[in-house]
Design a protein around this nucleic acid. Structure first.
Lengths: 212, 212
DNA sequence: GGTAATATATGAACAAATTCACAAATTTAT
DNA sequence: ATAAATTTGTGAATTTGTTCATATATTACC
């Protein structure tokens, strides 16, 4: 059962965490786990874990708990990370290059197929086996290779325009590291804004209010 | 009034977003804004914006709205990004180097004062004016310079140990890019887990369920 | 094979977050 | 100066999310 209809975003946020912890357990050779045990490891209540998983179907078994490998597979299916989405990365600056080389795209439902930048000087440089291409080649490349996802590591000022052309080229999902808030303008497209700056400011708040 | 006591995390999450949008408006020369206007730009309800801000005090004026520069300052104070926290970055791999060079730490309440890695080969390389130091020099450096924040761009397997030593060296806040879940183990320390992999999996889910 | 222990699934109770609605204050227009 | 139009701040209503409690199923053990 993998039929999500009106699942709360808060539940979705927790799914990758479950997936990660189950992967670790599996790597340790653990085969089964109860919601109570998992709750201790993961720092949530057992009740919430059961409630979350039940949004998608009854994956557990009374008296036994959850079969880890199977549950992890189910969550992987729900997240849709089994068949990879073809992705292009736009902006091969510091951050773009780091994302390209650092991320394990394959294990998270994506396959990076092209890297683009507007700087002529970067053209041809190889990252993770892919040559940096000039941004002018993006249109042709997309028409030929049909990526569904774009990773935006570009300045805010360029984001709106590039995002628009990408939508016309059939891009359905954006992983957005630019400081531009895509969600606001294109609700019909899947967007995941990262906003590292916001995260850093939240840390500042937490440090400041450490004794509350 | 900047006295946060039992403020919900959801409110805190929105503060940087307010701060960002107010900064943009200010840059455009706008001086005042109503919660209704802001709500349209930012994609939240006006009511929620008023409710959020009122957690910290009445910054608006009936009939007028909010004075942008003043409100932004107030939020900056609440977030504590005015006096910078000294920070060290651990792990000068692809991601660490990108974070060091890419992030505008100063405008977000931090000052990067040291970069460390365990690889001898990287030692001495300059990033953003700072030399990469060997991880063995971390103890001395901390005792001398008293950083309060550490940015972890290291593999999961090293995170637990380094995190522990850093806590003993007086580190109060962690900006964690490793795949290790710090929150689970040290609730008394301020932690902001980034988990880019989780974000990518969420995007996968959103792409898969684009028509719901 | 039967009994005790375990653990899920699920509906109900509770808690938290968001939205609504309006009085009070201020601005703007005349 | 007065009236009309804005717009906040705030308590109440509503919605959403989390936790509790238990019937039901399964396993483990004697």
């Amino acid at each position: 059962m993998t039929n999500p209809q009106g699942i709360s975003e808060l539940v979705i946020n927790r799914l990758p965490r479950y997936y990660r912890f189950l992967g670790e357990l599996l790597a340790q050779g653990v085969q089964r786990i109860s919601s109570r045990e998992l709750s201790e490891k993961i720092g949530l209540t057992a009740s919430q874990i059961r409630q979350d998983l039940n949004c998608f179907g009854g994956f557990g078994q009374q008296g036994y708990g959850y079969h880890i490998a199977q549950l992890r597979d189910e969550i992987g299916n729900i997240l849709g990370i089994n068949k990879p989405n073809k992705a292009v990365l736009i902006g091969a600056g510091n951050l773009g290059r780091a994302i390209a080389s650092h991320m394990a795209f394959e294990s998270k439902g994506f396959k990076l197929i092209g890297i683009f930048d507007k700087k002529e000087a970067l053209k041809g440089q190889i990252i993770k086996g892919l040559p940096i291409r000039h941004i002018d080649d993006l249109d042709d490349f997309c028409r030929e290779n049909l990526p569904v996802c774009a990773i935006l590591c570009i300045p805010q000022k360029d984001a709106y325009e590039i995002c628009n052309s990408l939508i016309h080229l059939g891009i359905k999902g954006f992983w957005n590291f630019s400081h531009y808030d895509l969600t606001v303008n294109h609700p019909e497209i899947a967007v995941e804004n990262v906003h590292l700056g916001d995260s850093l400011m939240k840390l500042s708040y937490k440090i400041k209010n450490i004794n509350d």
